[in-house]
């Protein structure tokens, strides 16, 4: 199987970007020249070139979008949403908390918010499912069918409101601030934004993103100093209190936003 896998993942078809049908290498900071697929595609479907872009799509990509909206001829990569276990594990891994020790007895699903083992090791039976995983279309323990990739508001609530997400964002903010202070190059809010993007989304922010986030940190710090505010009802699942310093709390809240970013759960 390995040579086959190698052939698939090294093919130009597999390496195309999900946006417009050309190969991309973000590390190089730009878009590579177009790569025509070796697979015999429909003559109507062209390999896209990044020449002139309108509304985010190159003209060939726009034509392809019209001819083959479902991407049957693989003129671009399909975007996928992370599977449930990967969503949870990634929140933990990016905040440095994932326990990767292998094996051992299964962990009760009720401890999914507080025990940081890989999601794989939690109990999953017809009656005992971790809600967080279930919301992101975890596998049915009884049956062997294809998983679905739903997008529902409850997933948004889970990533914004779960104790896991809130606690990990707060913890990661503390770590990043401490690291910046220890390095002797605090870097200010701009430096924090870059580190935050790299930690959570594994990429640097674009200029526009960085500006938006810096403005958020400033305005949010002011907001948090405002005396009249309305707390949400209930106790929620978070165990870790927010930072008392408004500036640090704004950083925590920025990280939680990044955990909710579309790019966090999407594989391009």
């Amino acid at each position: 199987m390995k040579p086959l896998h190698r052939m698939i993942v090294l093919s130009s078809t597999y390496r195309m970007v999900s946006s417009g049908g050309h190969a991309i290498d973000r590390r190089a900071g730009g878009i590579n020249p177009p790569i025509r697929t070796t697979r015999a595609a429909s003559p109507a479907v062209e390999a896209a070139s990044p020449a002139v872009e309108i509304g985010g799509l190159t003209p060939p990509a726009r034509r392809n979008q019209h001819v083959d909206p479902d991407n049957r001829y693989l003129w671009r990569m399909n975007s996928r949403r992370m599977e449930a276990e990967i969503v949870r594990d990634s929140v933990l891994a990016t905040s440095g908390a994932l326990d990767i020790s292998p094996g051992g007895p299964e962990t009760p699903e009720s401890e999914g918010q507080t025990v940081f083992r890989r999601s794989l090791y939690f109990r999953l039976t017809p009656n005992e499912k971790m809600k967080l995983l279930e919301l992101f279309d975890a596998a049915d323990p009884n049956q062997c069918y294809r998983r679905r990739e739903s997008v529902v508001p409850q997933q948004s609530l889970a990533l914004f409101n779960s104790g896991l997400a809130i606690d990990r964002a707060r913890a990661l903010a503390a770590t990043l601030s401490a690291e910046a202070a220890a390095s002797g190059e605090p870097g200010g809010e701009a430096g924090f934004v870059v580190t935050a993007f790299e930690s959570v989304l594994s990429r640097a922010p674009t200029n526009e993103e960085r500006i938006a986030c810096e403005r958020f940190l400033t305005e949010h710090t002011e907001l948090l100093q405002h005396p009249t505010r309305t707390p949400f009802a209930g106790t929620g699942g978070a165990k870790r209190p927010p930072a008392p310093d408004p500036r640090q709390r704004a950083r925590e809240n920025l990280l939680l936003v990044l955990y909710n970013h579309n790019d966090f759960v999407t594989i391009r």
Partner: peptide, 29 residues
């Protein structure tokens, strides 16, 4: 709704502000 509240350590105002940023970032990306 599952995960229907972040709990009382979070305020409605800060959540609203987070959502505005999130929408802007998703728009950019």
């Amino acid at each position: 709704l599952p995960f229907g509240t972040p709990g009382n350590t979070v305020t409605v105002e800060e959540r609203r502000s987070q959502l505005d940023l999130l929408e802007r970032l998703n728009q950019l990306a």
